[in-house]
Design a protein around this nucleic acid. Sequence first.
RNA 1: GGGCCGCUAACUCAUCUGGUAGAGUACCGGCCUUUUAAGCCGGGUGUACUGGGUUCGAUCCCCAGGCGGCUCACCA
Length: 491
Amino acid sequence: MAEVSELIKERRRKLEGIRERGIKPYGGRFQRSHCLGEAVEIGDKVKVAGRIMALRSHGKTAFADLRDGSGQIQIYVNLDLLGEERYNLFGKLDIGDFVGVEGEVFKTRTGELTIKVENFTILSKSLRPLPEKWHGLKDVEIRYRQRYLDLIANEEVRKIFNLRSSLIKVMRQWLDERGFLEVETPMLQPIPGGAAGKPFRTHQDTLEMDLYLRIAPELYLKRLLVGGFEKVYEINRSFRNEGISTRHNPEFTMLEVYQAYADYQDMMKLAEELITHLAESLLGGIKFTYQGMEIDLTRPWRRLTFHQALKENYGVDIEEEDIKSLTEKIRSAGVKLEGEKVTRTALIRLLEKSLSSTSPTFVIDYPAFLCPLAKKKDESRAERFELFMGGCEIANAYSELNDPIEQRQRFQEQKLTDEEEELRGHHESKNPLDQTCSQEKMIDEDFIRALEYGMPPAGGLGLGIDRLIMLFTDSPSIRDVILFPQLRPEK
RNA sequence: GGGCCGCUAACUCAUCUGGUAGAGUACCGGCCUUUUAAGCCGGGUGUACUGGGUUCGAUCCCCAGGCGGCUCACCA
């Protein structure tokens, strides 16, 4: 720190002033009688603590607004009450400092309940000025980098993260009540599976082996179905080393649920009921607005086959057309494609465009080649759905493929197409990490072995929690619902 | 990774066509013993993201870089 701003120097001077009086500017435990959100009445003797959010000094008297995690209250100090020494010490306090106060509640002339401070304790001296009180903190870069400031300055942001916590709590409760068992499966995986996407690679020194941060928990949760657990779920982070956008953060939170003897139809019901329940308990209703779009969760939600969705909206017949006319039509619909490759993402973009202003829609029965882990409905289609809402992909589910022989074949086909793409030169990457890409397509032999022991038929559902919270809080970017989104380091 | 846009005081923002930066809040000093976006008087506290270039002169124009936002691409 070469240059320290005048404001910081000034606060350090005050800090020294406090120390010179033999007072510790960083206190310890402070026993409170009340939280600031609790109701108090005139005459109550209270002992509270919090951060000074505003100061109005009048010479021989002063008011300050004190805030803690539960609420805010005004405090009042005056010279007669505190004596000169203590009163001058109070003058060393700034907006941002933590202070504990003790006194009696009274009502001011303007009718505000206020604590008349008889004694106060400095709990923490703040050395940096807080963002401006009226306009708050708007600079998104500072908001994301220094989330603590965002939380201090912007109440709506605190509300978002409170809702996030409640949502996960309610979700757990709902699943627990229905007999689902919450489990934790490896984040560090020797073979990352269960989804697409480039994994993050790391290394375990003792075992002298490379490991990958999981891109999905799927293959481990299915092993638990093999093991005899019939209803399991996991709420936790997955990691994908892909592009970052308003809907993608390298680490994101997913719910994955598996239920034995069920299928994707059951998962549709589960998704409907769970999300409706979340909306009712957190938003107080099943209608809300996301970025100007009216979203209505009234059941049953629309079901649309993948085939229909593309045909109706774009005249694209995925079962009839060859790659060339398919890519042409996708392009003319305004979705860009790299090369001649029809990716799952391109198709999803297409769907998102047409479903963007609608209430929840299940797009069902995907082309089987797009879902190697799903049970086939017939030759070309798989029992899979994706749930779209507010123009965003929220959930994804299958009737889980439990035939070990077919599973191996489907993995191999997948591997083949990846190799084909390689040959076609679509992977002209010089990134050394891409070497792991071929590795990561390795078949998870233990997963196949588990299936060979027998996995009951099951439905499985993955739900993007961050995205659901975006919808519920009307947040335009996933960064608004993740406390510390990934950013490049400063300087 | 590509395209577009942005970066000015601690914060929120101005600064016209290139003439050397200014408001509010915050902060400092003064007055003020019930204020609440307290008030009144006085004070501008600055590496204009960084580094080059053009120019008599650059916050402004040009080039390179950094960080961020949006968007496109990638994400069985």
